[in-house]
Simulated assay, not measured.
Amino acid sequence: MFGRDDFEWQRLIEAGTAFLVEQARLRRTTTYTEMDATLARRTGLRRFDFSQVEERAAIGELLGRIVRSDIARTAYADGPLMLSALVMYLNENDAGTGFYVLAEELGLLSPGATRMSKERFWIDQVTLLQAHYAAPR
Score class of each variant (00 low, 15 high):
E8Q: 02
L45G: 01
L128S: 02
M116W: 05
L26R: 11
F2L: 06
F7T: 15
R68M: 12
I13H: 04
L81W: 04
G79S: 02
A85V: 10
L45V: 06
G44V: 14
G96A: 05
A131S: 00
A135V: 15
T30D: 14
A134K: 00
L45H: 12
F2C: 09
T127M: 03
I13T: 14
I59Q: 02
V126I: 10
A134M: 12
M88F: 09
L83W: 08
L63D: 01
K118C: 02
E54F: 08
Y76W: 11
E61D: 13
Y76T: 05
A95V: 11
G112E: 04
N93W: 10
R27G: 11
F50Q: 08
A57V: 13
L39G: 00
A18H: 11
A75V: 15
R137E: 13
Q130G: 13
G44F: 14
E61H: 05
A40N: 08
P111L: 12
A72W: 02
G79M: 06
G16E: 11
L26E: 07
A113V: 08
L129N: 03
D5Y: 01
F99H: 11
M88E: 12
R27L: 14
D49E: 06
Y133K: 04
Q52L: 15
R65Q: 06
G107Q: 01
R41C: 04
R115G: 00
E55W: 07
